[in-house]
């Protein structure tokens, strides 16, 4: 999540280049498919490529710090899954050792690894998604499909930082008055915290209803809401729509035909000979935003102005 001060910067970027230049509908659909890919293909090669693609996308979008700050959590989760799977599954032919009566198999461990890679890939899509689909783009996208819901979510997004700031204020005053200062039981602490929280609730309810009155005074619900940003579909979008749609259709068709499946039990299947047109399609799909962003990056860093 960008800091509040970065608002202006985001607007400048979202007006413009690379992956941001695509119509939000297109980039949103791209992300939905990107979420589905690691869930669909539990194949080591596919997952490795998808994982790398998502990491590169995040780096190009400038989400290095987000990745770093979540790294510990990703590793924790991944190792949890890797270890957990062989404990519950004793399928597989290559037994590494016995835990009590249960065999601990290499295949199950490997499957745990695949699961972990798939889950971490899904988690890694979120930082990139949050960078590209900013709240204003989200509102633009869904204000025709689900206007009330989209607007509601946008208002919630605005209220959360406001409420957190107010909460900080309330806590500050309460602390100055000596509440929270003594060592108390858990129960008493919870009660005190909730009483403090109630102050925030009454305050926010009151002021939110003023917000509603103000909205109405400015003409809410008199007409269809217009969007602050207007995105139009241009030729550029159509080209990429074609490319994305074609690669997705090919990927889905291959998926139905059985490409991208990997057999683990009883023996690990060799992964390499599976390089196929289908695999290349997936690579192509992953390469689209990397191409868009990478071109910008190269232009910015290497091409000198000849003026």
């Amino acid at each position: 999540m960008p800091p509040p001060s970065a608002g202006v910067k985001i607007d400048m970027i979202s007006a413009g280049n690379g992956f941001f230049a695509l119509h939000p509908g297109l980039s949103f659909s791209y992300f939905i498919i990107l979420f589905l890919l690691p869930m669909m293909f539990h194949h080591p090669l596919y997952l490795a490529v998808i994982f790398t693609g998502i990491i590169i996308l995040n780096l190009l979008l400038g989400q290095v710090l987000v990745l770093k700050s979540h790294l510990k959590w990703y590793i924790l989760m991944a190792s949890f899954i890797i270890i957990l799977n062989p404990l519950f599954t004793s399928r597989g032919a290559t037994i590494m050792f016995y835990l009590g009566n249960r065999p601990f198999t290499m295949e199950a461990l490997f499957h745990g690894g695949l699961f972990a890679l798939s889950l971490v890939s899904i988690l890694l899509v979120f930082p990139a998604y949050m960078r590209v689909i900013t709240p204003d783009r989200f509102l633009f996208l869904f204000s025709s499909l689900a206007p009330n819901t989209a607007f509601n979510i946008t208002v919630v997004l605005r209220f959360i930082p406001l409420l957190r700031r107010r909460l900080q204020e309330v806590l500050f005053v309460q602390q100055a008055m000596g509440i929270f200062s003594l060592e108390k039981s858990r129960r008493a602490k919870a009660k005190e915290t909730m009483e403090t929280f109630n102050i925030l609730v009454t305050w926010s309810l009151e002021s939110s209803l003023q917000t509603a009155a103000s909205m109405r005074a400015r003409g809410y619900e008199t007409q269809k809401r217009s969007s602050a940003m207007v995105y139009q579909i241009n030729r550029y979008d159509l080209v990429f729509l074609g490319l994305i749609a074609a690669s997705v259709a090919a990927a889905l068709l291959g998926y139905i035909w059985g490409y991208g499946q990997y057999q683990i039990y009883p023996y690990l299947e060799p992964a390499l000979p599976v390089l196929s047109w289908h695999f290349l399609t997936i690579m192509f799909f992953l390469f689209i935003p990397i191409f868009l962003e990478g071109r910008e990056w190269i232009q910015w860093h290497f091409i000198r102005s000849k003026m």
């Binding site: 919630v156 609730v201 209803l209 917000t211 009155a213």
Partner: peptide, 17 residues
């Protein structure tokens, strides 16, 4: 109504915060 949207939003924000 504007009030309904805002109240749902503020309650959801309260629940989240």
């Amino acid at each position: 109504k504007a009030e309904v949207v805002v109240v749902i939003a503020v309650l959801a924000a309260i629940a989240a915060v």
